[in-house]
Each structure stands twice: as structure tokens, then as C-alpha cells.
Simulated assay, not measured.
Amino acid sequence: MERRQIIPYNPKLKEIARQLRNNSTLSEVLLWLELKGKKMRGYDFHRQKPIDNYIVDFFCHELMLVIEIDGISHTWEEVAVNEEIRQRKIESFGIQFLRFDDKEIKQNMSFVLNTIHDWIVEKEKIPS
């Protein structure tokens, strides 16, 4: 049986993650309704998951996949630079990212779900 890679996280972020789950944005709630309960091809996703010194919107350990929803704050230059640093650090653990705009979630959920589905199908084709 293959062992799951242990991904470090800062335990101090657990309470912050819980608060974020309890105060989710509309886009996070809408996407969560589509991912929870292994609805996406049987994979278990978690929301507001601490990884290293960061918290990601959605994470599937089995796929090593983070899904992020970019809202208005992500358009500011300083935030964008910090997001890039954050993403590179998380990717250093072998994790891949899918990013969606807040508007995409609200206005074109079928596109978002098809993109995630297609990414998973491609990942399943690659032997581990």
C-alpha cells in the first residue's frame, strides 16, 4: 500500500482555517457544494486547509491538488506577488494548482466543474 506524503502545516493556522470555513464567501460555498461528499469523481476534498504557513481554499490530498478562488483582492499587484510566492512554496511539496475567478464560480459553474473533471481525468491517466 502506497503511503501518503506528509505535508507540513502550521498548527496555529487550524483555528484560523475553522473561522474561514465558518465565514466562507458565496463562491466558496457554491464550489464546496459541488466538491463535498466525494462528488467529484469520488475524491475527498477539504476546504480552508492549512498547508505549510498558508491556508488554501480547497485541497485533495490524493490528487495533490489545490483549487483556489481568486477574488477582487487578488488583482492588486502586491497581493499578486505574494500569491505567486505562496503558490511556488506550496508547489514545492508536489502540489498542483487550479485557479478560478470568483465570477467564473458564480456565472459559469459548469465550466469550472468541467475544468476540474478534465484535470482529474488527465491525472488518472498518468501512472503513479
Score class of each variant (00 low, 15 high):
residue 33 L to E: 15
residue 118 D to N: 07
residue 128 S to P: 14
residue 33 L to S: 15
residue 85 I to A: 02
residue 105 I to V: 09
residue 85 I to M: 01
residue 43 Y to N: 09
residue 111 F to W: 03
residue 1 M to H: 13
residue 112 V to W: 11
residue 95 I to F: 01
residue 16 I to F: 04
residue 19 Q to H: 09
residue 51 I to R: 01
residue 21 R to F: 12
residue 115 T to E: 08
residue 123 K to G: 03
residue 52 D to K: 00
residue 58 F to Y: 06
residue 114 N to W: 05
residue 102 D to F: 09
residue 35 L to H: 11
residue 94 G to E: 01
residue 71 G to H: 07
residue 22 N to L: 11
residue 20 L to M: 08
residue 70 D to F: 05
residue 44 D to H: 15
residue 14 K to R: 10
residue 64 M to D: 04
residue 54 Y to T: 00
residue 13 L to D: 01
residue 31 L to I: 12
residue 70 D to H: 07
residue 127 P to A: 14
residue 128 S to R: 15
residue 45 F to N: 10
residue 38 K to P: 12
residue 20 L to T: 02
residue 39 K to P: 14
residue 62 E to L: 04
residue 111 F to M: 07
residue 110 S to Y: 15
residue 49 K to G: 05
residue 5 Q to E: 08
residue 100 F to V: 02
residue 59 F to D: 04
residue 52 D to Q: 00
residue 99 R to M: 10
residue 75 T to I: 07
residue 15 E to F: 07
residue 112 V to F: 04
residue 82 N to I: 02
residue 126 I to N: 11
residue 88 R to W: 05
residue 56 V to H: 02
residue 120 I to M: 08
residue 32 W to K: 15
residue 50 P to L: 03
residue 13 L to C: 00
residue 96 Q to E: 13
residue 48 Q to L: 09
residue 38 K to V: 11
residue 43 Y to W: 06
residue 67 I to D: 08
residue 128 S to W: 14
residue 116 I to D: 12
residue 87 Q to K: 06
residue 76 W to M: 13
residue 51 I to V: 00
residue 70 D to I: 01
residue 125 K to T: 06
residue 36 K to R: 14
residue 120 I to N: 10
